[in-house]
Design a protein around this nucleic acid. Structure first.
Lengths: 193, 193
DNA sequence: GTCGTAAGTCATCGATCGATGACAAGGCTA
DNA sequence: TAGCCTTGTCATCGATCGATGACTTACGAC
């Protein structure tokens, strides 16, 4: 079989593979161009399937976005570390230093951030950040400024993700992860007082 | 004159006022819903004018966006403070603690962040952050990790802006500005070594 | 007061968007 | 191999988008 034959050969019919390809393409497109900047035809073209299948398999573009968000939210951070420094360190390794292409795309928070223009997305982002990450962080601080200190640590982590994924600064990907972790730990430790 | 008369009275023709109203409405809409999530008819409706005037006065929706970005870039940060702590403090007061409604809308960086799906906007965001703010910051640090330390401070500042303007966390607006400045200063000071 | 320029309004275009329904064809089962 | 359900394809809809050109009317110069 020649290469042209291979390229023109009819695709195997595989519901699971098609769904998965659509999800992967959607994650990449939504992460890079946001919800409003992404068209269903572009997603389908990236996945190599017909755009109509998006609606057959997911119902609507919004449902596809929700499905792309739902995949593998890391979760389970609460039990892993006690102090704010260790907790932050775990988040740094997971959110910021994690291989962007190796896992399955971008972190859900950064994916939502790119589509924060839509009210539902913003509401969910607010909920997950404030009542999730920030609450977990604040519980690990003592003193009356716990909320403020948690906010600053959260801002640092979120900012690092934005720097890498949105601004595209080359510093964090090129830096030694151990040094990054040490510097962040020093900043968080400076808040314990 | 009754209220109805006032409302139905023909508007005064004022080129400058119309242009300004369009710019203000555009800044608000673009900052909240992003470039792709904002329509010219919505901007015009907010400004109380006809959508056609956008094209007459600015040429295109993209040109209006550029004009909204161009207004009052703070600038002139380079000469104001020498050390990284003082420099950061100046940025905190200006970018994060500034009254969002009092000035003229959101900081240009946050406005670009909301429309980072568009390649031109992302390129400009990358340019201004990396070759502007981060370079200024890195020049104020000593040692070989200057770029990394500048990146972390930049991430903290950017993250604080995102927390307030995108995530909508109520902590920073409600917090005592002096305490915020003190905590941020402690985090930045922890990087000097 | 008249008149011309500029500001505002209206109708509408072509493209693109998400979404739908009818139709063709593959693949498993009997 | 015959039949049926599922998967993929095609044509197309209605809404909305940015943008254009012609028209109307207010305001200031003279």
């Amino acid at each position: 079989m020649t290469y042209a034959d291979f390229m023109n050969a009819p695709k195997r019919r595989d519901r699971a593979a098609t769904r998965s390809a659509l999800l992967d393409a959607a994650r990449r497109r939504f992460a890079e161009h946001g919800f409003d900047g992404t068209g269903v035809r572009e997603i389908a073209a990236d996945a190599g399937v017909d755009a109509t299948l998006i609606f057959r398999y997911f119902g609507s573009k919004q449902d596809l976005f929700d499905a792309a968000l739902a995949t593998e939210v890391p979760a389970g951070l609460g039990e892993r570390a006690a102090g704010p420094v260790e907790f932050t360190d775990a988040l740094v390794r997971e959110v910021v230093l994690g291989d962007p292409a190796g896992n399955d795309g971008e972190h859900p928070l950064l994916l939502m951030l790119r589509s924060a223009g839509r009210p539902e997305v913003r509401a969910r982002l607010h909920e997950e950040v404030c009542n999730g990450y920030l609450a977990d962080l604040a519980a690990r601080f003592d003193g009356e400024d716990a909320a403020l200190r948690a906010e600053l640590v959260g801002a640092l982590l979120l900012g690092m993700g934005v720097m890498r994924a949105v601004v595209g600064s080359p510093v964090l990907p090129a830096a030694d992860p151990e040094r990054v972790r040490a510097r962040v730990a020093a900043m968080v430790a400076a808040l314990e007082a």
